[in-house]
Measured scan of single mutants.
Amino acid sequence: MDSLVVLVLCLSCLLLLSLWRQSSGRGKLPPGPTPLPVIGNILQIGIKDISKSLTNLSKVYGPVFTLYFGLKPIVVLHGYEAVKEALIDLGEEFSGRGIFPLAERANRGFGIVFSNGKKWKEIRRFSLMTLRNFGMGKRSIEDRVQEEARCLVEELRKTKASPCDPTFILGCAPCNVICSIIFHKRFDYKDQQFLNLMEKLNENIKILSSPWIQICNNFSPIIDYFPGTHNKLLKNVAFMKSYILEKVKEHQESMDMNNPQDFIDCFLMKMEKEKHNQPSEFTIESLENTAVDLFGAGTETTSTTLRYALLLLLKHPEVTAKVQEEIERVIGRNRSPCMQDRSHMPYTDAVVHEVQRYIDLLPTSLPHAVTCDIKFRNYLIPKGTTILISLTSVLHDNKEFPNPEMFDPHHFLDEGGNFKKSKYFMPFSAGKRICVGEALAGMELFLFLTSILQNFNLKSLVDPKNLDTTPVVNGFASVPPFYQLCFIPV
């Protein structure tokens, strides 16, 4: 009986604490739906499609509103004006990374994606500088992407125009580009180590996009005490870190300090320079996690976009025909596509942009946080508050993009057929937390897609009208449904 009384008292205290925290903070924060004790607004949000729920709530509470995930307040920004004001106009104040408990377990605050403060700034600055020195957006990395595009075309030829699921092959190409940047090595598509790495990356994007992960991140005790797919994700990350550590040891034994070959060499050189400046942010643990982040951000996002792009091109054969006509006119058949071609191919450029806009790969991006107490639109948001960005509300804005739910390359073309930029184009987020590999991803999408369409016609196994382009999961990332196609050599 005594234990029951204690339990009831504990629960009562928890409920009172929950109510007090919510009521004391709500006077400062933007308005929002009334949260339930302990669980907050979790029942009012469709976990399978958070973005749709945010759109519905914005119609009631406006472009800036507050939700509670458990006891934790989260300020939501919906629509271009609110997102721009926060991420661009007040970029420094909104540059923090929001709480992501599962990532905390995986990387302990290291790396480039989930770190904060001085650690994040130094690692991000170093990573950007190193990638630029190796030619991100310049010639040397373009050579690597072109080489991988040629290998991709050869792998597709091996399908002999038979029906195939493109998931694996389209994942190999961007993964190999990242391998060449980090390890100075590309792998054969049949290499077992490479296959294991690909498998872990593919599993992780599916797990991260599941409703279960949303629950884990908002009720963090689940991570330590409950079984579930989150444990598989943590094991996959541990596998990748151990693999990278092996490569780091190989580099330490063979590195030429006067001739760095890749990202690992550059990081080890930085560690050597910083060894007298303790404590340094440049450690082996930081290198492991930064490399894992580059793999995660640079492989599955690009391969998922490529997979979605081919599905949309199957669905819209008239678009595919126009792209192939432009390829034939500008590039021809006797040389590989290059980035200089893009400025002469406005329709193809528009298609690449429209694919990214339409699929809305990361509907709410990753959570941000404010780095200080900030007054925002007459609300006071306390330091450390998590900020949720609705990228969907920007990419699918119906004023900027008429009929935003329709796939239409003319969203990025003017009346004369010239490519038209849009400030609403934010597939990689915006501001200080914009994806480090934005330029690389854009290069890969253009070169891989043009190389495929230069060499193959795409054949659907069903009537294009019957192809479903609805994402199968739409949590962290929008993942396309399973499909097969035939690559018919031109």
Rank of each mutant, 00 (worst) to 15 (best):
P166A: 04
S393P: 08
P37V: 03
K200E: 02
P37E: 00
T159L: 13
V352E: 01
E438T: 08
E272G: 14
F428T: 03
V370K: 01
D463G: 07
G62R: 00
E285R: 10
N398M: 14
M271P: 04
K315N: 03
K206D: 09
L14M: 08
D463V: 05
L71D: 15
R329K: 09
E354K: 00
G332C: 02
K232R: 09
G98T: 11
T364M: 15
G137V: 08
L447P: 00
Y61G: 00
D349G: 10
L310G: 02
P33R: 01
S58P: 03
I123T: 10
K72F: 04
C164G: 02
M339A: 12
S23M: 11
N217F: 07
F126P: 05
I99K: 15
G475A: 09
E154L: 06
T130D: 06
S478Y: 10
T283G: 07
I359A: 13
Q484T: 06
S12T: 06
F239I: 09
R186H: 03
R139A: 12
K72I: 04
M271E: 05
T301H: 09
S478D: 02
L170Q: 00
K28V: 14
H230Q: 12
V472K: 10
K399V: 14
V394F: 03
A106C: 13
I264A: 06
I374L: 12
T130A: 13
S51N: 15
L461T: 13
M198K: 10
V323E: 02
L453G: 01
I39T: 03
K118I: 13
I45M: 12
A477R: 10
N334L: 11
R307T: 06
P101G: 13
Y424M: 12
I387G: 00
N218Y: 13
I112L: 11
T34M: 11
Y358V: 07
R125S: 11
G137S: 13
R329C: 12
F401K: 03
R150G: 06
S478I: 13
D262K: 02
A430L: 06
S115Y: 02
P481A: 10
L156G: 00
R157D: 05
N107D: 08
E415R: 08
A173M: 01
N133F: 11
G91E: 11
K383V: 05
A439R: 06
C216Q: 07
V479P: 03
M269R: 15
N107V: 05
L16P: 03
L128F: 10
V76M: 02
G416Y: 15
F110L: 12
A106T: 14
V75G: 00
E328H: 12
V323N: 00
S162P: 00
H368C: 08
H316Q: 03
L313G: 02
L195Y: 06
R307F: 01
S58M: 04
M426D: 15
G27P: 13
P63I: 01
G32L: 00
S12A: 10
W120R: 05
V60P: 05
V355N: 01
N258G: 14
E281A: 11
E104W: 11
E444D: 03
K200M: 13
L447V: 10
F412Q: 01
K72N: 07
P363R: 03
V145G: 00
F226W: 07
L467Q: 05
R144M: 11
L361T: 11
S451E: 10
N277Y: 14
F65M: 12
